[in-house]
């Protein structure tokens, strides 16, 4: 356990060395946040101040929370694992007395957690100061929101790991990454809240792990979903957590038998 804790810290430390990248990310997050404010607020107002349960305060919370989590939830499909399989350095991972799958997700979680500080919190602060937004209700709301956020980050790491692990068979996974980039952002509710989707698309999204990464944590952290419904979302997250982790374990095991080390 101490080992994985140390790996988590290492993930945080590694990310902390890229300060300029964090600043760049923050600027991008904020700019697109303001863009979303313009478009989505107009939509809410055009609908008479209420759009599928979203008023301006709820919409603002959705926008700034989802933008703030962009540095932490991996919606671009890129993984260290994919690169390491491609250049062969994955052999080093297999030389360690570690579960390769667990170690990769732990490191990715460290990166995610670190990014909450230079990218998540400032984005939220800017949103609150410039626009104002809803917040969770009471201690339970915050606690459930935090739990959903943590679950979302692990699910994100576990799902994107699956894309990287396809490299055991394909070696080159860039095409898959692009596919993931397009699909995950949309179905996770990055562009518009999932509640605004037509019914069939909302159902489709619910059959993927993507809403668990971003939409559900945002719903809980903004206080939009409370009580039994909130517990229901966390329950769905737990199901996806188990499924994605199990798939990752199985793929790592099968992938090892397929592994052909690139570059000698």
């Amino acid at each position: 356990m101490r080992t994985y804790w140390r790996l988590l810290l290492a993930g945080i430390r590694r990310q902390s060395t890229y300060r300029l990248a964090a600043l760049g990310g923050l600027v991008a997050n904020t700019t697109f946040g303001l863009l979303k404010v313009a478009v989505l607020f107009a939509a809410v107002r055009a609908a008479g101040g209420q759009l599928r349960g979203y008023d301006v305060g709820a919409m603002s919370a959705y926008i700034w929370l989802s933008q703030g989590l962009l540095g932490s939830v991996n919606l671009n499909g890129r993984t260290d694992l994919a690169d390491r399989i491609k250049d062969g350095s994955v052999v080093v991972d297999f030389l360690r007395p570690l579960d390769v799958h667990a170690a990769a997700i732990t490191t990715e979680l460290g990166r995610s957690l670190f990014n909450l500080v230079p990218r998540g919190l400032p984005t939220l602060a800017i949103g609150v100061l410039l626009v104002g937004m809803d917040v969770p209700h009471g201690v339970t709301g915050y606690a459930l929101g935090a739990a959903a956020l943590l679950l979302g980050l692990v699910i994100s790491g576990a799902t994107v790991f699956l894309v990287g692990a396809c490299g055991f068979w394909l070696v080159e996974t860039r095409g898959l990454q692009v596919f993931y980039l397009v699909l995950s952002g949309f179905l996770a509710g990055l562009f518009v809240p999932i509640s605004l989707f037509p019914d069939w698309l909302r159902t489709t999204a619910a059959l993927t792990p993507f809403p668990s990464m971003l939409m559900y944590p945002v719903d809980l952290l903004s206080g939009r979903v409370v009580g039994a419904a909130a517990l229901g979302l966390v329950g769905q997250q737990l199901v996806w957590l188990v499924l994605t982790l199990a798939a990752g374990q199985a793929m790592t095991r099968a992938g090892r038998h397929k592994l052909e080390v690139q570059g000698g």
Binding site: R2, T3, R6, L7, A10, R13, T17, Y18, P97, L98
Partner: peptide, 15 residues
């Protein structure tokens, strides 16, 4: 992206 010292201490934890 980490120092040699940090790398050693992570490896020590791993082992």
């Amino acid at each position: 992206d980490l120092s040699v010292r940090e790398s050693f201490s992570i490896l020590a934890a791993i082992h």
